[in-house]
Amino acid sequence: FSITQFVRNLGLEHLMDIFEREQITLRVLVEMGHKELKEIGINAYGHREKLIKGVERLI
């Protein structure tokens, strides 16, 4: 299971460039909250919320 699959499953594949540029893996994403996601350029609250909720389902 990769970050690419995870992001695609959430319908947020347009954010993949950010994850690749910042070298974010699923392991790193698990540790990130709204503040960190915003810092790397994910400005939409809804997108950040989707990512965080998606990660919570993985754990």
Rank of each mutant, 00 (worst) to 15 (best):
F1C: 14
F1Q: 11
F1G: 09
F1M: 14
F1H: 11
S2Q: 10
S2L: 08
S2G: 12
S2K: 08
I3V: 10
I3C: 05
I3G: 02
I3R: 02
T4C: 11
T4F: 14
T4Q: 15
T4G: 14
T4N: 12
T4P: 08
Q5P: 04
Q5S: 12
Q5R: 08
Q5E: 15
Q5G: 09
F6Q: 00
F6G: 02
F6P: 00
F6D: 00
V7P: 00
V7S: 03
R8T: 14
R8L: 10
R8P: 01
R8E: 10
R8H: 12
R8Q: 14
R8A: 13
N9V: 12
N9R: 12
L10P: 00
L10T: 03
L10Y: 04
L10V: 07
G11F: 03
G11E: 07
G11A: 06
G11I: 01
G11Y: 04
G11S: 06
L12F: 05
L12Q: 00
L12C: 04
L12T: 00
L12N: 01
L12P: 00
E13D: 13
E13V: 11
E13T: 09
H14P: 08
H14F: 15
H14K: 09
H14R: 08
H14M: 12
H14T: 10
L15H: 03
L15N: 00
L15A: 03
L15F: 05
L15R: 02
M16F: 05
M16E: 08
M16L: 14
M16N: 08
D17G: 12
D17V: 14
D17Y: 15
D17R: 10
D17S: 12
D17E: 15
D17P: 15
D17L: 11
D17Q: 11
I18V: 08
I18P: 00
I18M: 06
F19S: 00
F19D: 01
F19P: 00
F19R: 00
F19T: 01
F19Q: 00
F19C: 03
E20F: 07
E20Y: 11
E20W: 10
E20L: 13
R21L: 06
R21W: 05
R21N: 08
E22K: 12
E22C: 08
E22T: 06
E22I: 04
E22M: 05
E22N: 15
E22G: 07
E22R: 11
Q23K: 12
Q23A: 13
Q23M: 09
Q23C: 09
Q23W: 05
I24F: 04
I24L: 08
I24V: 10
I24W: 05
I24Q: 00
I24M: 07
I24P: 02
T25E: 06
T25I: 04
T25V: 05
T25N: 09
T25K: 05
T25F: 03
L26E: 03
L26S: 03
L26R: 02
L26A: 05
L26P: 04
R27L: 14
R27H: 12
R27N: 13
V28E: 14
V28C: 11
V28T: 13
V28H: 14
L29I: 06
L29P: 00
L29Y: 03
L29M: 07
L29D: 01
V30F: 13
V30Y: 11
V30K: 14
V30M: 15
E31V: 13
E31K: 15
E31Y: 14
E31M: 13
E31I: 09
E31D: 13
M32G: 01
M32V: 02
M32H: 02
M32C: 03
G33H: 07
G33L: 04
G33F: 03
G33W: 02
H34M: 03
H34C: 03
H34D: 05
H34Q: 04
H34G: 02
K35V: 08
K35Y: 08
K35M: 08
K35S: 11
K35Q: 11
K35C: 08
E36I: 03
E36V: 03
E36Q: 08
E36P: 03
E36K: 06
E36F: 03
L37A: 02
L37Y: 05
L37W: 05
L37E: 01
L37D: 02
K38W: 07
K38N: 08
E39I: 08
E39N: 10
E39Q: 13
I40C: 04
G41N: 02
G41W: 03
G41K: 05
G41Q: 04
I42Q: 03
I42G: 02
I42R: 04
I42N: 04
I42K: 04
N43V: 14
N43G: 13
N43P: 07
N43T: 14
N43I: 15
N43Q: 13
N43W: 11
N43M: 14
A44D: 15
A44L: 13
A44R: 11
A44I: 13
A44S: 15
A44V: 11
A44T: 11
A44H: 15
Y45T: 07
Y45P: 08
Y45R: 11
G46Q: 15
G46T: 14
G46S: 15
G46C: 15
G46V: 14
G46Y: 13
G46P: 11
H47M: 13
H47Y: 07
H47C: 11
H47P: 08
H47V: 15
H47N: 13
R48H: 02
R48F: 05
R48D: 01
R48V: 06
R48P: 02
R48Y: 06
E49Q: 13
E49M: 12
E49G: 04
K50Y: 05
K50M: 14
K50E: 09
K50D: 07
K50R: 12
K50P: 01
K50V: 10
K50F: 06
K50S: 09
K50T: 13
L51K: 00
L51F: 05
L51S: 00
L51Y: 03
L51H: 10
I52A: 02
I52K: 04
K53P: 00
K53D: 07
K53Y: 07
K53V: 09
K53W: 10
G54I: 05
G54A: 15
G54D: 04
V55M: 09
V55P: 00
V55C: 12
E56G: 08
E56S: 10
E56W: 07
E56R: 14
E56Y: 07
R57I: 11
L58A: 06
L58H: 08
L58K: 03
L58R: 01
L58I: 10
I59Y: 12
I59W: 08
